[in-house]
Simulated assay, not measured.
Amino acid sequence: MTLHLISHDLCPYVQRAVISLAEKGVDFERSNIDLGNKPDWFRAISPLGKTPVLLADGVPIFESAVILEYLEETQPHPLHPGSPLERARHRAWMEFGSATLNDIAGFYSASDERTFAAKTAGLRRKFEWLEGELGTGPYFSGDLFSLVDVVFGPVFRYFDTFDRIADFGVLAELSKVGRWRRALADRPSVVQAVSSDYPRLLERFIERRGSRLSWILEENTVQLGAGTWQAR
């Protein structure tokens, strides 16, 4: 079987598929597209116009959750637990991860200080929930690297950039969350899910939002190089 992943440089949902494929040791081709100028061939295979799309022997599969489940059913090295109850629990927390990504989008898109503060507080509540759910680590289910970890690797990657812009306190004093974040940051599949210029691309994306976070970035930091900032 040939697997061809249609990708975008910054898409966290693409990263999920890449991490899963890497953990399973599966060969695949990856092609990036410009979502601001979608080619006709992409529109023809992506009814929602979003990435990722996985072409499995030429058959398009869209939506990251569906792609992850397909890979679980067809590829080695399962990332779901064996128990039906635990699988259901993990799927629920994967949905929580998607909701967290939606909150992150609200955070970097908030246009005024009041909305930005509300979005920051909402993100904080999400991670407080996680702090209460996590055990001794290093991963969501202890030593088992699972699809919940696959989902949250891209979530925490955003904070590598946010933390360089300013201290927003979203993850402050959440020791279990911090330990989990560090474990995922060290996982080769998570590290390699994006290109080396990802931090620079994310910075440029934030700059162009015209949002409160864009203003904070402009006011408090200067870019020194790809993904590196220094306070003024």
Rank of each mutant, 00 (worst) to 15 (best):
residue 149 D to N: 10
residue 108 Y to T: 02
residue 146 S to D: 04
residue 101 L to G: 00
residue 206 I to P: 05
residue 191 V to S: 11
residue 143 D to K: 15
residue 186 D to W: 15
residue 152 F to I: 12
residue 78 P to G: 08
residue 136 T to S: 10
residue 120 T to P: 07
residue 76 P to R: 11
residue 92 A to S: 07
residue 91 R to K: 11
residue 80 H to W: 14
residue 195 S to F: 11
residue 209 R to Y: 05
residue 77 H to F: 11
residue 90 H to C: 10
residue 116 F to D: 04
residue 107 F to E: 08
residue 158 Y to F: 15
residue 158 Y to M: 08
residue 134 L to S: 02
residue 153 G to Q: 12
residue 90 H to G: 00
residue 83 S to C: 07
residue 102 N to P: 00
residue 166 A to K: 13
residue 167 D to V: 13
residue 141 S to T: 04
residue 165 I to C: 09
residue 81 P to D: 02
residue 129 W to T: 11
residue 176 K to N: 06
residue 189 S to H: 08
residue 89 R to Y: 05
residue 179 R to F: 03
residue 91 R to C: 02
residue 205 F to K: 14
residue 199 P to G: 02
residue 188 P to F: 12
residue 83 S to H: 09
residue 98 S to L: 12
residue 130 L to A: 07
residue 100 T to H: 07
residue 84 P to C: 01
residue 88 A to P: 00
residue 192 Q to P: 06
residue 110 A to E: 04
residue 180 W to A: 10
residue 165 I to G: 09
residue 169 G to D: 03
residue 125 R to G: 00
residue 90 H to Q: 11
residue 204 R to D: 13
residue 111 S to M: 12
residue 149 D to H: 10
residue 101 L to M: 12
residue 165 I to Y: 05
residue 190 V to H: 09
residue 108 Y to I: 06
residue 199 P to M: 06
residue 209 R to H: 14
residue 105 A to M: 14
residue 96 F to G: 00
residue 119 K to D: 01
residue 118 A to L: 10
residue 191 V to Q: 15
residue 219 E to P: 00
residue 96 F to D: 00
residue 134 L to G: 00
residue 143 D to F: 06
residue 203 E to I: 15
residue 167 D to Q: 14
residue 165 I to M: 08
residue 185 A to F: 06
residue 114 R to M: 09
residue 124 R to D: 00
residue 174 L to T: 07
residue 156 F to H: 07
residue 129 W to Y: 07
residue 216 I to M: 13
residue 182 R to C: 01
residue 179 R to E: 10
residue 84 P to E: 01
residue 134 L to N: 01
residue 170 V to K: 13
residue 132 G to H: 04
residue 218 E to G: 07
residue 198 Y to E: 12
residue 105 A to D: 09
residue 97 G to I: 06
residue 209 R to W: 03
residue 175 S to V: 14
residue 141 S to V: 01
residue 127 F to I: 01
residue 182 R to H: 05
residue 85 L to Y: 14
residue 183 A to V: 07
residue 159 F to I: 08
residue 207 E to T: 13
residue 151 V to P: 03
residue 100 T to V: 15
residue 187 R to G: 05
residue 193 A to P: 13
residue 180 W to K: 14
residue 199 P to H: 04
residue 209 R to P: 00
residue 86 E to I: 12
residue 181 R to Y: 03
residue 147 L to Y: 15
residue 162 F to S: 08
residue 178 G to W: 08
residue 200 R to H: 13
residue 80 H to N: 07
residue 213 L to P: 04
residue 101 L to I: 02
residue 124 R to M: 03
residue 139 Y to V: 09
residue 202 L to K: 12
residue 166 A to L: 08
residue 174 L to Y: 10
residue 136 T to L: 09
residue 125 R to E: 03
residue 199 P to R: 13
residue 156 F to I: 11
residue 117 A to Q: 13
residue 110 A to S: 03
residue 121 A to W: 03
residue 185 A to M: 05
residue 196 S to F: 08
residue 204 R to E: 15
residue 218 E to R: 15
residue 115 T to L: 09
residue 191 V to F: 15
residue 172 A to P: 00
residue 165 I to H: 09
residue 141 S to F: 05
residue 189 S to R: 05
residue 83 S to P: 09
residue 94 M to A: 09
residue 162 F to Q: 11
residue 95 E to P: 01
residue 178 G to V: 10
residue 169 G to L: 06
residue 190 V to K: 14
residue 120 T to H: 02
residue 151 V to S: 05
residue 148 V to F: 04
residue 126 K to C: 01
